[in-house]
Each structure stands twice: as structure tokens, then as C-alpha cells.
């Protein structure tokens, strides 16, 4: 499965917006995401990609743009 598309689908479910043209947009600063949405995102990512992301590993600054999320998921998939 294409990681980028998978991440964008999850973000689309959460925010109601297609973010494919704003891959470097900070989605916390613009109010699209908050803590509750990130919890849901982590759960969805775990289900979809079969990766393990403990809450401890969630640092906002490392997950705040679609591109960063894709990169994180890819690195966790390769572990």
C-alpha cells in the first residue's frame, strides 16, 4: 500500500480536508489537528500499517505536517 495515500486518507477522515496539496503545512498551527485528533491518528495508523506507536513517542514537533507523518510511518514500518 502507498504510505502517503494511506496517511492522507486517515488525515482526511480526521480533518475533513484533502491535504495532498499542503504536505508541508503545520496541521496543528492551523487548527486542523489537536491532541484528541492525534490520539485517533495514532490508533488509525496502528491499525492501517500494523506499526506500534506508543504515546511516549508522539512529539508534536515530529508529527506536525503530512510529510513528517509519512516519514515517521515509513521509518516505523522499516523497523
Amino acid at each position: 500500500m502507498d504510505t502517503k495515500q494511506g496517511v492522507l486518507d486517515i488525515l482526511n477522515d480526521l480533518t475533513g480536508e484533502d491535504l495532498s496539496d499542503q504536505m508541508d503545512e503545520n496541521i496543528f498551527d492551523n487548527g486542523l489537528m489537536d491532541s484528541m485528533a492525534s490520539v485517533q491518528m495514532l490508533l488509525s495508523l496502528q491499525e492501517k500499517f500494523d506499526i506500534d506507536v506508543p504515546v511516549s513517542e508522539f512529539k508534536r514537533a515530529e508529527w506536525d505536517t503530512p510529510n513528517k507523518i509519512v516519514a515517521k510511518v515509513e521509518s516505523l514500518e522499516n523497523e
Binding site: S35, M36, S38, V39, Q40, L42, L43, V55, F58
Partner: peptide
């Protein structure tokens, strides 16, 4: 409080499906 109470509790509650509604959970 956000990382060690709010997010952990939400994660737990969401995983166990304790609440039907995400807004109520938050």
C-alpha cells in the same frame, strides 16, 4: 498533563471503545 493524562486516557478509552462519540470522549 496533556501527554501523561489527557492523551493516555483518550488512547486507552478509544482503544477499548468506552465512548461512542469522539466529542464526548474529549
Amino acid at each position: 498533563f496533556r501527554d501523561y493524562i489527557y492523551m493516555r486516557f483518550s488512547f486507552f478509552a478509544m482503544k477499548k471503545k468506552l465512548f461512542k462519540n469522539r466529542i464526548r470522549l474529549s
